[in-house]
């Protein structure tokens, strides 16, 4: 079954046409990397998937739920679709452990002992078990982002959306975060939609690369044909040559 399906989706911010006629299908277990210049609509697109932005027309089916239908309960979708933000958005008033445990506790009603066990295992997996009692303000950017990923994983989602997860990080922190993401991508059942400029990540674990500009999907390729062949689209070629040069 497809995890995410966009059919003729349009999105406006007032008069600004943010998403043009988006058609895109992402299968369960796929890792899809979304690239493109800033202002191209990548973030808007990824934010429509869990209903943080609403679409104006077309059809958007996520995990079997129709997001264009007003009767759809967004919280049901969000239980199964995690999100990792550029600026982490960790709960500033909660410890690291609480950041991970709170949603499973109040949303999934997970048993407290089980909840703590899951949280500690995840902290271990992202290499930050010693930070369980720290507050977000005491963490570096790279640590914060790894905690944010652990918080997302704690809900046992079917899909995680990554909205520029490494753009706000110091260069030496980026690898730690990417390694955690690669680790998740190796789990074949997890669907990942990643907005990023990290081409190394796209090359290594991406199944597909989507190139967007001006609110349109201009290229939708397997990573092999995108990186090793040449994108058919001129703008995508230009974008790629600029990114690869650096």
């Amino acid at each position: 079954m497809s995890m995410i399906e966009f059919h003729d989706v349009e999105k406006y911010y007032g008069k600004f046409h943010a998403l043009h006629n988006i058609n895109l299908t992402i299968e369960a277990g796929e890792t899809v990397v979304l690239i493109g210049p800033s202002g191209s609509g990548k973030s808007t697109l990824i934010r429509t998937v869990n209903g943080l932005e609403l679409i104006n027309s077309g059809q958007l089916i996520v995990d079997g739920f129709d997001l264009a239908d007003k009767k759809t309960d967004m919280n049901k979708i969000r239980k199964n679709v995690g999100m990792v933000f550029q600026h982490f958005n960790l709960y500033q008033n909660k410890t690291v452990l609480e950041n991970i445990m709170i949603a499973p506790r109040i949303v999934l009603k997970r048993d407290e002992t089980e909840n703590k066990k899951v949280a500690m295992e995840l902290l271990d997996r992202v290499g930050l078990a010693d930070k369980a009692g720290s507050y977000p303000a005491q963490l570096s950017g790279g640590q914060s982002q790894r905690i944010a990923i652990a918080r997302s994983l704690a809900m046992h989602p079917k899909c995680i959306l990554f909205d520029e997860p490494t753009s706000a990080l110091d260069p030496e922190m980026i690898d730690d975060v990417l390694n955690v993401m690669k680790d998740i991508a190796r789990d074949s059942s997890m669907t990942m939609l990643v907005v990023t400029h990290e081409m190394g990540f796209a090359r290594e674990v991406g199944d597909r690369v989507i190139f967007m500009a001006d609110g349109r999907i201009l290229e939708d390729d397997t990573k092999e044909s995108f990186f090793d062949g040449q994108p058919t689209n001129e703008r995508a070629r230009q974008f790629l040559s600029k990114i690869i040069k650096h």
């Binding site: 969000r78 999100m83 933000f85 600026h87 958005n89 960790l90 949603a103 944010a148």
Partner: peptide, 10 residues
């Protein structure tokens, strides 16, 4: 971002 993070978290 605190509200968005919470909502995205379910």
């Amino acid at each position: 971002g605190q509200m968005e993070g919470s909502r995205a978290n379910g």
